[in-house]
Design a protein around this nucleic acid. Structure first.
Length: 945
DNA sequence: GTTGTGACCTA
DNA sequence: GTAGGTCACAACG
């Protein structure tokens, strides 16, 4: 590496274009419909340069308004650039914002191109003793190369090559890089619309340069040329001169290279993360964070903590004479000079101790019991709380300090240690802080510990503060504390066959890792507490999400009984039918192929069988074979329905019928889903491993799966309780739309009622089709209508759909007012909220891009509706759970499916339960519209629904 | 082995 | 048009 100072000047548009075209076959479109290819491509390149080269000086140069001088010279100059793709235009403001957040200087000069700005700056920097690297793939820049100025060219397929004088001499076959101008003047440059000399290409230009040295000299000696070439060049001498001018990069742009301004400093990571989040650049966030942190972590880790300080033994404590667990923290490492550095365990003063058995543990327990607020974190042998066992528990109640209580592997010994700490967990007076407490609570439940007292879960807090972000602790620490915690993979390795268990990690490392987590979580709590207050969502946090966490933990631990034998027999039936369909399809197709491969299927249908003249393609260029497209073709070709059936049955078999029995937990014999409380942006729960919120119901075949969900035993019965039309009731109440409110109050069929109103017929005369269309519009309203979407969902044309929506709004004028009011609120405040004040931030609500803005507007309407429904059922769940606990009932709440709760009811409690559940659900929240809950019971979930 | 895509399941 | 999750395939490392 050169000892000289190095400055990197980035040619923004060149890299943006390059990035955009790199993705051209497979453009990156995010969920809001924004083409982010150009931004992604550019950021990848920029981060790559920073990662590889660690420049100390860097700037990004843009064009502005094109080059007036060059356009004056030649009308057609860079006409190509006028056809800038829309995706690149929209990318520019984002890239500008990102660069600002990264504290990278942006160089633009009205009326000049980036080439000229870079050229001028390079020469100035050279005078100041800098080595300059021009980051661009554009060969025009070769003319600027000198002993201190290099081209830094991205290479397709990854990597970079540096072009200095020798490389230029070789590539262009010139002596002096300045001759590159002559070279370009002769051969022209199609991408820049530099015409060049007619008939002169790369080969000829090189020959001329070798012979004449310059364009001018060539033109002065045209008499030496022969034939057609001579005629052409003599007739176009002026064009040659002009081309050379166009190709000449200006070195006198009124910009100044000020080294200080170009120094690369630490980026505003939260800000950048926020923008990346908005663009949905998940992996780029990681890459970005790594790029700006990686350097420092290796340097200090090994020397961070003197070994002698890591474990406090009883004798240490006794030696201290009195109760003093802390001693003096003397483990601070020097802050590292690197400007990118984020704090780590190696750079931060900390005092983490493991607690030895015996007297030290006794002293520790006494101390922890004297606290009022303690953060804890359990370390276990795995991620599944049902099978994992405790390895240790970390505690922290003061920033930078904490203790680690190891738990032995032997079950009896483990329980003995747990008994010592039981008073802490069961102490009402100690507030417990943690990250994802649901997990810790589930683990501790296996040791018969019920965690009592006030809870503060940092993951839940952050979910309410910023539901669109991710909430894992490492990200939170990096974002809010500018701190990179020890990575779990550093301890136990990447997942796979060689991954260690936490129990295999040396105690010192366990301590450092575990107590750090507790310490960080405690610090995050202090941060989030104030944010919850300023967003006015403490009520939602303390009275909904936190109590719900205990409810979900209980439901997950409970699990649900599954009739695996029944599914096995279904599987066999299904297998037969799938094989029959398969044979039929192969027969019609005249060949065997993989029907499950959309790629192969597309080729068979549209190339071999030629079912359609102009088949639709997906964004990746494959034939689209989605259900809605194939359905259109079903009546014309018998093979289509068979394919659809095949796919439906395969999905049913693989996802449900075959997968569910494998998810039975051997220790309990039941299926335990995991409810995610911090995933859905609207406030809903989600369910996985397995997902019990998408068990089939719509088709007869699929519905059979529900028969496999059965009560605990013959003394029990399943009960399903679902809210009837809760989202429509909410929108009716919030909008105060009297007609709709009245219909609900009268207990009418709301879709029929809507149809009667919209089509202006008596309720009794509403046809099936009218009701069906009204139902579609009703749902459309909840989702944020568009005529396009509506016509896709019905047999109505676009204009009929538009008319129906207009009539709908005339019928329910207040609904329309309400929806506009939501959008206006979002515009003014940047967020919308539910009945309980749960917020969803809508950054795009004022976007200039209509597609993006439209998406945000639909969210503005939908989020409060969907979110309020989620709020209400959460209230009901907490109330019911508490009532079941207080009443000491045997009946249990098992599942939540957005507007439905499923219970295992102890038969003698059935009547009491029906009353309790219906009442709590209907009274959970008072609206101007009554809430209505339907109850059903059965010996399986299908019967109960 | 991981990752993205297309397909399909739910409220 | 909203909000989720899981599967098989295919392409990448």
């Amino acid at each position: 590496m050169s000892e000289q100072k190095r400055v990197f000047l980035v040619d923004a548009y060149a890299l943006i274009f390059r990035g955009y075209y790199a993705f051209i076959k497979n453009p990156r479109i995010n969920s809001k419909g924004v083409d982010t290819s150009a931004i992604m491509g550019f950021m990848n390149s920029l981060l790559d340069v920073i990662k590889r080269e660690r420049p100390d000086h860097l700037a990004v140069c843009f064009d502005k308004g094109g080059s007036a001088d060059r356009v004056e010279l030649f009308e057609a100059y860079k006409a190509n650039r006028d056809a800038t793709p829309e995706a690149i235009k929209t990318a520019i403001p984002y890239i500008m914002d990102i660069l600002k957040a990264m504290h990278i200087p942006i160089m633009v000069k009205e009326g000049f191109e980036a080439d000229d700005v870079i050229g001028t700056l390079s020469k100035q920097a050279e005078k100041e003793g800098f080595t300059t690297f021009m980051v661009t793939p554009d060969k025009d820049f070769a003319q600027l190369v000198s002993e201190n100025i290099f081209m830094y060219r991205p290479v397709f397929g990854g990597g970079y090559e540096t072009w200095g004088i020798p490389e230029i001499q070789k590539k262009f076959e010139v002596e002096d890089p300045l001759q590159v101008i002559d070279f370009l003047g002769m051969m022209g440059d199609a991408s820049d619309n530099i015409p060049g000399l007619p008939g002169v290409g790369e080969k000829t230009a090189k020959k001329f340069l070798a012979q004449y040295g310059s364009l001018e000299n060539l033109l002065a000696h045209t008499h030496e040329l022969k034939g057609k070439m001579k005629e052409k060049i003599e007739a176009n001498k002026e064009l040659g001169i002009l081309s050379k001018k166009l190709a000449t990069i200006m070195l006198d742009v009124p910009v100044t290279f000020n080294a200080k301004d170009f120094e690369l400093s630490a980026p505003d990571i939260p800000k950048v993360t926020e923008i990346f989040q908005e663009l949905e650049f998940r992996r780029l966030i990681d890459n970005f964070v790594k790029t700006f942190t990686v350097e420092t972590t290796e340097s200090g880790a090994a020397t961070a903590v003197p070994e002698s300080k890591k474990t406090a033994s009883a004798s240490d404590l006794a030696g201290a004479g009195q109760f003093n667990l802390f001693g003096t923290a003397s483990t601070s490492a020097e802050a590292l000079p690197n400007t990118f550095s984020r704090q780590t365990i190696a750079t931060t003063s900390h005092f983490y101790q493991s607690v030895a058995p015996g007297m030290a543990t006794d002293l520790f327990i006494k101390n922890v019991m004297a606290q009022t607020c303690v953060c804890f974190d359990t370390e276990t042998t795995g991620l599944n709380p049902l099978t994992a066992t405790l390895v240790g528990i970390a505690f922290s109640w003061e920033v930078g300090k904490g203790f680690y209580l190891p738990v032995p592997a032997n079950q009896e010994a483990a329980q003995a240690v747990v008994e010592l700490i039981r008073p802490f967990f069961e102490a009402e007076h100690i507030e417990k802080v943690g990250q994802n407490l649901k997990y810790d609570i589930k683990v501790l439940d296996k040791y018969a510990i019920k965690v009592q007292g006030k809870l503060f879960d940092t993951m839940l807090a952050h979910y309410l503060i910023n539901p669109d972000m991710r909430h894992n602790m490492d990200v939170l620490a990096e974002t809010y504390l500018n701190y990179t915690p020890v990575s779990i993979t550093e301890l136990i390795g990447k997942k796979g066959k060689n991954q260690l268990s936490m129990r295999d990690v040396p105690l010192e490392a366990q301590t450092e890792y575990a107590v750090e987590d507790a310490d960080i979580t405690l610090q995050l709590k202090q941060h989030f507490e104030t944010e919850l207050g300023s967003a006015n969502i403490e009520h939602l946090f303390n009275d909904i999400e936190i109590p719900l966490l205990r409810v979900l933990a209980a439901m997950e631990l409970e699990g649900i009984n599954l009739d695996a034998d029944f599914l096995t027999s279904l599987s066999a039936d299904l297998d037969t039918d799938i094989k029959i369909l398969e044979a039929k399809i192969y027969d019609v197709a005249g060949e065997t192929f993989n029907i499950a491969s959309p790629k192969q299927l597309g080729i068979v249908l549209f190339e071999n069988l030629k079912l359609v003249d102009k088949p639709k393609k997906t964004k990746t260029g494959q034939y689209a074979t989605s259900e809605d497209i194939l359905s259109y073709l079903a009546k014309d070709h018998e093979i289509i329905q068979d394919i659809l059936d095949y796919r439906g049955l395969s999905k049913l078999k693989s996802t449900y019928i075959d997968a569910l029995p494998t998810q039975i937990e051997p220790t309990t014999g039941r299926v335990h889903t995991d409810y995610m409380q911090t995933v859905a942006a609207t406030g809903r729960l989600s369910s996985n491993n397995p997902n019990l919120q998408n068990i089939p119901i719509r088709t007869e075949r699929g519905r059979q799966v529900r028969k496999a969900f059965i009560p605990r035993n013959a003394d029990y019965i399943l009960l399903a309780a679902d809210y009837s039309q809760i989202e429509l009731r909410i929108i009716a109440a919030l909008s105060k739309e009297e007609t709709m409110i009245t219909a609900f109050k009268n207990g009418e069929d709301i879709h029929a009622s809507t149809a009667a109103q919209v089509f202006n017929v008596p309720l009794s005369d509403v046809t099936r089709e009218q009701r069906s269309n009204a139902k579609t519009v009703n749902f459309g309203i909840i989702y944020g209508v568009s005529a396009f979407g509506l016509s896709n969902q019905t047999n109505l044309s676009r204009s009929e759909a538009k008319e129906l929506i207009e009539t709908y709004y005339e019928t329910y004028p207040k609904l329309k007012t309400y929806m506009s009011a939501q959008v206006d609120f979002a515009r003014d405040n940047g967020y919308v909220q539910t009945v309980l004040g749960r917020r969803r931030y809508l950054k795009d609500i004022n976007s200039r891009n209509g597609v993006v803005r439209g998406g945000a507007e639909r969210n503005a309407v939908n989020a409060p509706i969907q979110g309020s429904a989620a709020d209400i059922i959460k209230i009901a769940m907490i109330a019911i759970y508490n009532a079941l606990e207080v009443g000491n009932y045997k009946s249990k709440m098992l599942l939540q499916v957005h507007d439905e709760l499923v219970f295992d009811i102890y038969k003698p409690e059935l009547e009491a339960m029906k009353m309790l559940i219906k009442t709590e659900m209907e009274q959970a929240f008072t609206l101007e519209v009554p809430l209505d809950v339907d109850l059903d019971t059965g010996i399986n979930w299908l019967e109960a629904h």
